[in-house]
Design a protein around this nucleic acid. Structure first.
Length: 484
RNA sequence: GCCCUUAUGGUAAAGAGGUUAAUACGUCGCCCUCUCACGGCGAAGUCGGCGGUUCGAUUCCGCCUAAGGGUACCA
């Protein structure tokens, strides 16, 4: 049987990273098995309609390379692929189920007859009280004729158990008596997710349903639905949840308070698409080998259900940083410069002009593109810093010796014509040799004087070059005065 | 409350009835070094608890605990 997987997001307007991982795994599995990857839009909740939300889905799949074989824009005969356009289909199947005795019309008003409200702290069972389950045919007909609003509910077996086999979690069994008579068709005529996914997965011949494990509890109900229809259920592959670590050490579902959680936000922050994909591929799945850096085609080659892990995974931004740094370093420098353009808009003009050079410093140092601006902050922000910075035991420096060195150098620097990194290095080197110093002894005070920072994205000569002669001389002069 | 699921260092994870329990990120130390980063070397740190099965259990079973999910006219 041909493998067909689907990615079925609701158009919420953004792509949560957990959602993207589900799409990734569905894609990887389908492609590994030479099957089809299908996109279906689950927009049955009209209250949640978001303008332009499907565009976000298309764009994300396109950017990440998770190309679908079928979808709203590529109908291969199983369409429509947008649930709101399949309204009639669900109605037809729901009614079919009523005829078969596996579902029934319910005329109870919203919430009114769900005896759960005040059952919170008690031992009462929750859920719908099944008031309409045994309405006579005549009553149903009458209500329907009167135009009463109704929903269609699934008629759960009163006893026995239901078991299904999940490809990652194994056999799962529940008591049928614990199952609620869930709504299949809402009073607005739209199906619930619980019903639509069953009908669609069957009609679209989905072989493997890959989805988050929040659906495990509902899966027995789906099994019962498949049984009621006489359909063969697809295999299920439930995925653990991606969690975020809270400041207090607890964990909860990854959300905005943990950092960027949507694909778009991560990209905006300066994470590369390939790094994001590589990282999340390994968040809940393992190739069971020591290598960790994989391209999408390599992941396709390696992916298998065996490697899927059952436990929730905590999203580790540090590890993502590491992957990202690797991908950044692998970029050609031309690509790096091109890609970095939109992240350096806040840098001073004169640095942008020198970006060709500065970018070489940045490429080997940043974890993500948003690190660039803070890295060169000293170019703009030059405040009176702690003079203690001039003292450095390792380079045998105190304030007095630093000052002397700066005094010597300022005269030399003022007369330099060729303000290039190479020449600056050479001239400072010459001075250092003359004095029989170690290079650190001269470079340290210069670097500090000119940046006000101990940690800088390059060496002393590089910093001088970036600042330019005029600004460098100005800053050094100022520090000589402060040291006096 | 009830139902389902899960449990290997801080994080991601490999693993097997008997191992010095991989590896990667992170952390710390050393080297390199004008700082950072890179690179090299090294270190610390783990099988949630209690019983049972077994010659032997972190691995199999049970209970407990903790965590996650479900219990919607949301998906």
């Amino acid at each position: 049987m041909k493998v067909r997987t689907r990615f079925a997001p609701s158009p919420t307007g953004y792509m949560h990273i957990g959602n993207l991982r589900t799409a990734l795994y569905a894609y990887l599995f389908a492609k590994h098995e030479k099957g089809s990857f299908i996109l279906r839009i689950e927009d049955t909740d009209q209250k949640r309609f978001v303008e332009g939300a499907t565009e976000v889905i298309y764009n994300t799949l396109k950017q990440t390379g998770l190309i679908h074989d079928e979808g709203p824009d590529k109908d291969k005969g199983y369409g429509p692929y947008v649930q709101s356009e399949r309204k009639e289909i669900y109605k037809e199947y729901a009614e079919k189920l009523v005829k078969k005795g596996h579902a029934y019309y319910c005329f109870c008003s919203n919430h009114e007859d769900t005896s759960s409200e005040d059952a919170e702290e008690t031992t009462q069972t929750f859920g719908y009280n099944r008031k309409c389950r045994n309405l006579s045919k005549e009553e149903v007909e009458k209500n329907l004729k009167e135009g009463k609003r109704y929903v269609i509910r699934q008629k759960m077996p009163l006893d026995g158990t239901t078991t299904f086999h999940d490809e990652v979690y194994g056999d799962i069994t529940v008591e049928n008596s614990s199952l609620d008579d869930q709504i299949l068709l809402k009073s607005d005529g739209m199906p619930t997710y619980n019903f639509a996914n069953v009908v669609d997965d069957h009609l679209m011949k989905i072989s493997h349903v890959i989805r988050g494990k929040e659906y495990i509890s509902s899966t027995p109900k789906y099994q019962l639905l498949y049984q009621a229809f006489g359909w063969k259920p697809p295999k299920t592959v439930h995925l653990s949840t991606i969690m975020g670590q809270n400041p207090d050490g607890t964990v909860s579902k990854l959300s905005k308070r943990h950092g960027s959680v949507s694909f778009a936000n991560l990209v905006d922050e300066g994470y590369l698409v390939d790094a994001i994909i590589n990282y999340i591929a390994l968040l809940g799945w393992s190739p069971k080998m020591e290598r960790e850096v994989f391209s999408l085609p390599e992941l396709v080659k390696l992916f298998n259900l065996d490697g899927i892990v059952k436990t929730n995974a905590i999203f580790d931004y540090k590890k993502l940083d590491w992957f990202n740094a690797i991908y950044i370093q692998q970029m050609t420098h031309e690509d790096f410069i091109a890609y970095s353009q939109k992240y350096i808009a806040n840098l001073p003009d004169y640095l942008q002009q020198k970006w060709e050079f500065a970018s070489t410093l940045a490429q080997s140092r940043i974890n993500k593109f948003s690190d660039i601006v803070p890295m060169f902050k000293f170019l703009d922000e030059y405040k009176d810093f702690d003079l203690e910075l001039f003292e450095n035991k390792k380079n045998k420096l105190d304030k007095q010796s630093s000052k002397e060195i700066l005094c010597d150098l300022i005269d030399i620097l003022k007369n330099i014509e060729d303000w290039s990194v190479q020449n600056l290095n050479q001239i400072i080197q010459d001075y250092t040799m003359l004095k029989e110093y170690k290079i650190g002894k001269t470079m340290w005070p210069i670097r500090i004087a000119v940046t006000g920072e101990v940690i800088t994205p390059g060496g002393g000569a590089e910093m001088l070059y970036l600042l330019g002669k005029e600004e460098s001389v100005k800053r050094i002069t100022k520090q000589i005065q402060r040291l006096s």
